[in-house]
Design a binder for these strands. Sequence first.
RNA 1: GAGCCGCUAGCUCAGAUGGCAGAGCAACGCCCUUUUAAGGCGUGGGCCCCGGGUUCGAAUCCCGGGCGGCUCACCA
Length: 494
Amino acid sequence: MQEKLSEVQQRISKLEALRQMGINPFPNDFAVKNTAKEITDRCGALDKEALEAKNETAILAGRIMAFRDFGKASFLHIQDRTGRIQVYIRKDLIGADAYKIFRTFDIGDIVGVEGKVFRTKTKELTIEAKIIRLLTKSLMPLPEKWHGLTSVETRYRQRYLDLIANPEVRDIFIKRTRIIQLIREFLNKMDFIEVETPMMQSIPGGAAARPFKTHHNALDIDLFLRIAPELYLKRLVIGGFERVYEINRNFRNEGISTQHNPEFTMLEFYQAYATFDDLMVLTEEMIGFIAKELLGTVVIEYQGEKIDLTPPWQRISVKDAVLKYTDADGEIFTDKKMAMAFAKKLGLNIPEAFSHGKVILEIFEHVAEPKFTQPTFVTHYPLEVSPLSRKNEKDPAIVDRFELLVCGREIANAFSELNDPIDQNERFIQQLKEKEAGDTEAHAMDEDFVRALEYGMPPTAGEGIGIDRLVMLLTNSASIRDVILFPQLRPEKS
RNA sequence: GAGCCGCUAGCUCAGAUGGCAGAGCAACGCCCUUUUAAGGCGUGGGCCCCGGGUUCGAAUCCCGGGCGGCUCACCA
């Protein structure tokens, strides 16, 4: 019979052969004592003779990543959560029977190893195995050792393979975790408390975006996945949590790109008795702290650009930025018709229904936003596009708000919070008008939030930082999919 | 949603002009007790993304579809 065996079938045969010999290919009784890194740290400084004299031993486990077979001896590299280490297997040391079993092991199998630490001729720190045991049989062949896994689609769909094969990918996700830890460390030290607020909301508020809709059967009500936690966090400030933050997912039913994933992670924090000016300083300190702890420097490189995070960062108002990068007449900020005409001149296609502020914002985003490569706080956004922000004391057409731009991208958005319930109610009403005029992203009315404000919210400043984009920046990642473990893709089978 | 590019062995990739489906790694067999992209000799392995069409003949040309990437639009 010349039945063709696939590699998987070959491996299943090996597994069955082991079972025939009374060996469990999936045991769970191997007590791991060491890691690759711990062994390297412990023995890395010792030379061949010193190692010989000290008789250092190790018990560790990991996945077989490479195999070099010499007949009666073999070298392999195994990989655990801390890295790779070489293992040397000798027939005369583990015994002929054990060696025969060992020869059935494949790349990808997970093994436990016990032995002495030594150095080879080429000085590589190596475990000379006294015992090697199969802990998990792998039936699927791993990606190739040299090129690794490069198929972008497979990397995203089978992220575990990406993590096994590509150490730099692993690094990025370890850095992501570390960044979030550092944020918590920074904020906790400042007496912020971390909270969790609803992901399912009956009024999706706190941002201008299209939500995902779902339904609760028992209550028989439609709910929306949240687009922002903002209004709930402010309710907590009203409740007396004067410094509060949440790191969690937001969901927006919009396009997918290198900058956008339908679910993304946001840090939002609120500090009572602070202003948006205070938050600029806090932001400089926090991101500087993260960069220093994570990378050891505040001068980072992103996609070929040197980014200097040394404070203070440039501050410029929307108005000044537009005037700086265009020959616009100052009148466009007071006259909507002038603004529309100027936008048209720039080649922007702007619906008549857009508010004056939205026209200004469109102009700003078109002409100025891409210019800000170095970290820049763009301040004083138009009132109409900021329905939750406090008005500027001197100019009621603008609000005390900033966005942090790095490499032309928005990393953070912050403002002194509007805490006047009557003003807030009017702003919501204005948003409803814009919704009627055709703006699908206009903010919804939230009467319960207005009621909360009526009890009195202390003067507060709040900020949101897009964690995925921050991680992209700090890990030099070009696409948001490279910092999200399982980015949204279309299902594989149609 | 639009434009451009890609999809061939488990992985990484070749396969001008239409003419027997290829390499390296991985796998399998043999040799080899300090290698590290080990080496040597040999062997097996394919829904060429899917469906139509043109043709004596299609991985290759044409049409439709799927999935992915990039750019743009929307957005954070």
